[in-house]
Design a protein around this nucleic acid. Structure first.
Lengths: 218, 218
DNA sequence: CGCATAGTTAATCGATTGATAAATTGCGGC
DNA sequence: GCCGCAATTTATCAATCGATTAACTATGCG
């Protein structure tokens, strides 16, 4: 009644823990957090109680998965990139979203983020508030300059402006949702697509901003 | 050992079935399809076995929820609206997305659609293929005309063009995801936001299209 | 009033869940 | 080589899942 001989492999705690965490990320990304510990163990080729030697509860393992997935993906230099006026804003945005999609666009990140949002908590809210403060606000500040409008020091940023940055971001992120959640094909040439989308943004948004403020100030 | 007197309410089968379906839509939208039948019954104020008098299995109830949510939301006149060249394209798109968001932007639709996508199946794929054929393709056809480019009869639609329509759509739909999945605030003035986004689209996309074809044909 | 029909319920079953305790086995140090 | 510790497994528990059965009770018809 023993396991198949030779299958039992004794790893160091560090190796085993890493194996469990990596497997859990993949597993929960696929089936959601209601996925069963027995099924996870089977995929890892270990027994279910062994999971509980490394993590006191399923909830703790999930918490660990969150941390592994969200930490270390953010590139602080993005914030400097956006405000580097030695390059055209269009070029900066293309670079930003090229790198952003390379960092974020993958099966595990997109699906775990969505499961996490549906579940509740406030993990997604916290993450996106950072995105807004570190990316969208500076982008809008730069947009003011490109559009020939007063700086944000003189005229505070309006929610309507922020929404235009959210819209650019949402259109791009929707690609990831299409691919990893709706299981639909997306362009092979992602970089080319980003170039076109950012080009449309640069051509259209400053005009809209001036249009908005002109109506607004009347 | 009987239930509390007076609580028992006898409804006609039609009323009871409707009550169960409506409650199930709300319930599964909130917690996902792993939500338990006992909890659903409790929220409805009935006992769990009664669910099985109306639906042979949980899976059948879920199937019914799908049909209730997705059927009857699509407005066939949208397809005619897009190609009505007696009005400016910008006005047509604003009208379209005003109506589209009124029809689709609600808690149940957005969350059940997302749960359904994560679960797999092909419900989301089928729906979105309709959206592409009925909305995005005609929009791109109209864009050709606005941009002064050859009609789609002469030069077939390219995937890159379709992606620009997907991008507009994704940016707008991302608002719904922010609100009902990430639990973030979105603009109160949704119609005004749509006006600005569509304006940016009309200002930026034709330029990008000509830019794209110019590079392309070299 | 009485009876049949049907809506509703309590009680329960077998399978599965997260989690635990105890037995087993692999590996490094002597 | 073998000894001991710790990694891993077997066996199992209590709770909970979807689903079933049989009994209970409200309503309409005569």
């Amino acid at each position: 009644m023993k396991a198949e001989t030779g299958k039992r492999r004794r790893l160091t705690p560090e190796q085993r823990e890493r194996q469990i965490v990596d497997g859990a990320i993949r597993f929960f990304a696929e089936v959601g957090f209601e996925g069963q510990t027995r099924e996870l163990a089977k995929r890892l080729g270990i027994t279910q109680p062994l999971l509980y030697r490394y993590f006191p509860s399923k909830e703790c393992l999930i918490e660990r998965v969150y941390n592994e997935v969200y930490i270390k993906r953010w590139q602080p230099h993005w914030e400097a990139l956006i405000i580097d006026r030695s390059r055209p804003l269009e070029e900066r945005l293309v670079t930003l979203y090229r790198e952003y999609t390379r960092a974020i666009f993958n099966y595990e990140w997109v699906r775990i983020f969505m499961f996490s949002g549906l579940k509740g908590g406030n993990i997604t809210e916290r993450y996106l508030s950072i995105v807004q403060d570190k990316l969208f606000v500076p982008v809008c500040t730069e947009l003011r300059e490109v559009a020939g409008l007063p700086s944000t020091d003189e005229v505070p940023l309006e929610p309507e402006e922020l929404e235009l940055a959210w819209n650019l971001h949402g259109g791009i992120y929707y690609l990831a949702i299409r691919k990893w959640i709706y299981n639909l094909p997306i362009p092979e040439d992602l970089d080319g697509h980003i170039e076109r989308v950012v080009h449309s943004f640069i051509e259209g948004t400053p005009v809209t901003l001036r249009w908005h403020f002109a109506r607004h100030d009347v």
